[in-house]
Write a protein that binds this DNA or RNA. Structure first.
Lengths: 149, 149
DNA sequence: ATCGCTGCAAAGGTTTTGCAACGAG
DNA sequence: CTCGTTGCAAAACCTTTGCAGCGAT
C-alpha cells in the first residue's frame, strides 16, 4: 500500500506518539480535507464510514494530541467552533465572505515586507513571534478558483 | 448628566434601534472595557452591579443586535468564546501570548503598504474587502505597556 | 505485560431560544 | 396603544472528562 501510511507513522513516532489506527486515519483525513480547514465533526464524518467504531470523543482527543505535539494547528472560527489545519508552514488565510471558504495563502514576499516594516518601527516591550495576515473578500465567480500571479 | 449618554442614544437611533435602558448600559460598558475586548460574561459583570435586574441572556441579545447593526464587532477567541469590540475603525490586533491581552493597533502606514502590495500583485476572482494583521508576540515586561514609535 | 489510548456516556461551558410580561416610541 | 424588547429558564451546541476495557510497543 501507499508509502503515505509509512510517512504518517514516522511523523507520529518522531514526536513520540504511538501509531494507533485512530491516529492514522485522523491524520489522513486531515490531509484529505486540508483545504477545508475542517472541524472535529467534519473529520469524524470523513473517518466514520471506514472506521465505524471510532468515537467523536476520540477524534477530539486525537486532534488535540496533534496540536500539542506540533503536528496540527487549531484556530477559532468566527462561527464559534474550532478548525484544524495540518499545514504547519507559515501561511496566511483568505476568507471568502460569500463561499465561506478559508484558503491558504503563502507569500514570502509579503512576510518579508511586513517583517521589515516592523523592524524599522521601534517597538519596545514586545517580542514578535509571528505575524498572520487575514484577507477578507469575496469571489466574483464563486464557482471558480482564485488566481494569484 | 454627561453628553455621552446623548451620543449613545443618537448612535442607537441612527441605526433605528430603541434606546432601552439595557442597550444604553451595555454600550457604555463596551466603551469602558474597550481595551479588554470583553466577553459577554465580562460585560454582564460590569453592568450587573448598577443594573441588578439585567439578565445574561439580554446581554447576549443586545451585543448581537449591536453587531448586526454595525455598532460593534465580534471575534472568536482561541479559547473558544466570543469577544466584542466597539472600535469600528479599521485596526489590527496584537495578541500577547503571555498576558492574554488583545491590544488594538492602528497603523495607516502598514495598511497602505499592504494595500499597495496586493494592488501590484494580480489577483483574479477575489474582491478584497479588508485586510487584518494579527501580530502574535509576548511582552518582555508583562507589567508594562508596549511602546510603538 | 505495561501503560497509554479508546469508546461511551455524562458533564462542562458558552450561547441561543421560547414565551409571557414589560416599556419605549 | 403597539410592537419590539426583556427576563427567566430550558435547550442547544461544541468540547472536555472519567473510567473500564483494549491494544501498540
Amino acid at each position: 500500500m501507499s508509502e503515505m501510511l509509512e510517512e504518517i507513522r514516522e511523523k507520529l513516532s518522531s514526536v513520540g506518539l504511538k501509531a494507533t489506527q485512530q491516529r492514522m486515519v485522523v491524520y489522513q483525513a486531515l490531509m484529505q480535507t486540508m483545504n477545508q480547514h475542517p472541524t472535529a465533526e467534519r473529520i469524524f464524518e470523513v473517518v466514520r464510514p471506514h472506521n465505524p467504531t471510532i468515537s467523536l470523543g476520540t477524534v477530539y482527543k486525537t486532534l488535540d494530541t496533534f496540536v500539542s505535539n506540533g503536528l496540527a494547528g487549531k484556530v477559532a472560527s468566527d462561527a464559534g467552533f474550532m478548525r484544524y489545519d495540518v499545514n504547519m508552514e507559515q501561511h496566511s488565510h483568505i476568507y471568502c465572505t460569500n463561499t465561506q471558504e478559508i484558503i491558504d495563502y503563502h507569500d514570502e514576499g509579503l512576510d518579508e515586507l511586513i517583517q521589515q516594516y516592523f523592524q524599522k518601527k521601534n517597538i519596545k516591550n514586545l517580542k514578535i513571534s509571528n505575524i498572520h495576515v487575514q484577507i477578507n473578500g469575496l469571489k466574483e465567480e464563486p464557482d471558480q478558483d482564485i488566481e494569484i500571479k
